[in-house]
């Protein structure tokens, strides 16, 4: 089922990969650790390369976008993480981008596949191939929106996945079609000040209603996904959640983040960070920079500071040079 990867080496920093798994060819890009950068910054290259816990970062497609993601932000992040010492990979899942494989005709059917965990086995195989080929000690899987769903499913099925970064994850199955009148009202709220105020009142009423009913999961909650999340979090796998206004529960909406934190072992090593001013794509200036900064800090905190003594001393030296904020 799994075959060796083929590569095309062209630029100094990137390599193109083709990996055969499950009978199809998946295509991706490898961002090499930029050793020159490490040398320039006074690192003992050999120590960093040979003794470090060599963690790779694997980016999945956000929704149906090709692997560069909206505004090519995944390219920016992968370049940046590679400069910080993390070999980074971006792959197209089956049917997406340059990869082979079938894809449904409609978005709705695609999201059904995503929400049922269809892509988990591909991600799991990929991590295995990358670990073998690049002698990694583990892989952190990063996903945005639909990609975050696949990342969570995959993490529950693979011990090679040692960390998960999710951007604006969602935990419901397909949304029901909203009645036209609700669509119209939503549109009005964005344009009319009075309607905006009325919307706030409506939200308040819904909030009270939720308090009365209790913190009960909505009918369209994606239970298998929530179980996977809990399994991953309970196992102590570090999870970084970055979310924007769009994923933030509005007044009267069920708060999945709070729910997951409240489960026994649910909080685990989960770090939750709201990104002010970013939009759902994270491709804007605020989103792009925040993802880079928080993820790099989290990677250091999760995989360097937690490492054995000889790594910690290296990390401490780095800390002296570039003091970083503690991950929240």
């Amino acid at each position: 089922m799994v075959a060796a990867a083929k590569t095309v080496e062209a630029t100094k920093t990137r390599e193109l990969l083709a990996v055969a798994t499950h009978g199809i060819c998946l295509r991706g890009t490898y961002h090499r650790v930029q050793t020159q950068y490490l040398v320039q910054h006074g690192w003992e290259l050999q120590s960093r390369e040979n003794e470090s816990p060599r963690i790779g970062v694997l980016f999945l497609n956000s929704g149906g976008d090709p692997r560069s993601a909206s505004g090519d932000s995944a390219v920016h992040w992968a370049d940046s993480f590679a400069r910080s010492g993390y070999p980074s990979f971006r792959f197209d899942l089956p049917g997406l981008g340059d990869s082979d494989g079938e894809l449904p005709e409609k978005w709705q059917d695609f999201f059904q596949l995503v929400n049922s965990g269809h892509y988990a086995s591909f991600v799991s195989s990929l991590t295995k191939i990358l670990m073998d080929r690049y002698q990694l000690s583990g892989v952190v899987v990063a996903g945005h929106c639909a990609g975050s769903v696949s990342a969570i499913y995959a993490a529950a099925s693979s011990r090679n996945i040692q960390g998960v970064v999710v951007l604006d994850p969602y935990f419901f199955r397909e949304e029901d079609e909203r009645p036209a009148i609700r669509k119209g009202l939503s549109h009005l709220v964005t344009r009319n000040k009075v309607a905006g105020q009325l919307s706030k009142v409506y939200g308040g009423v819904k909030k009270v209603s939720m308090l009365v009913k209790g913190n009960k999961l909505p009918n369209n909650a994606n239970m298998p996904l929530l179980r996977c999340w809990n399994q991953v979090a309970s196992a102590g796998v570090p999870i970084l959640v970055l979310y924007t206004q769009q994923a933030r529960p509005r007044a009267g909406e069920f708060d999945y983040f709070r729910y997951l934190q409240s489960l026994p072992g649910g909080a685990g090593r989960m770090v939750l960070q709201f990104i002010e001013g970013a939009n759902h794509s994270f491709a804007d200036d605020a989103g792009r920079e925040a993802v880079r900064r928080f993820t790099e800090e989290w990677l250091e905190a999760s995989f360097w500071l937690a490492a054995p003594e000889r790594y910690r001393s290296l990390a401490a030296r780095r800390e002296e040079r570039w003091p970083m904020r503690a991950a929240r």
């Binding site: 095309v8 062209a10 630029t11 193109l16 083709a18 295509r27 340059d98």
Partner: peptide, 17 residues
């Protein structure tokens, strides 16, 4: 021969995918 050959093509100041 792979049916789809991905590579980089050098142009001034950049590599085209």
């Amino acid at each position: 021969i792979p049916r789809e050959q991905a590579g980089y093509f050098e142009v001034p100041g950049a590599h085209l995918y």
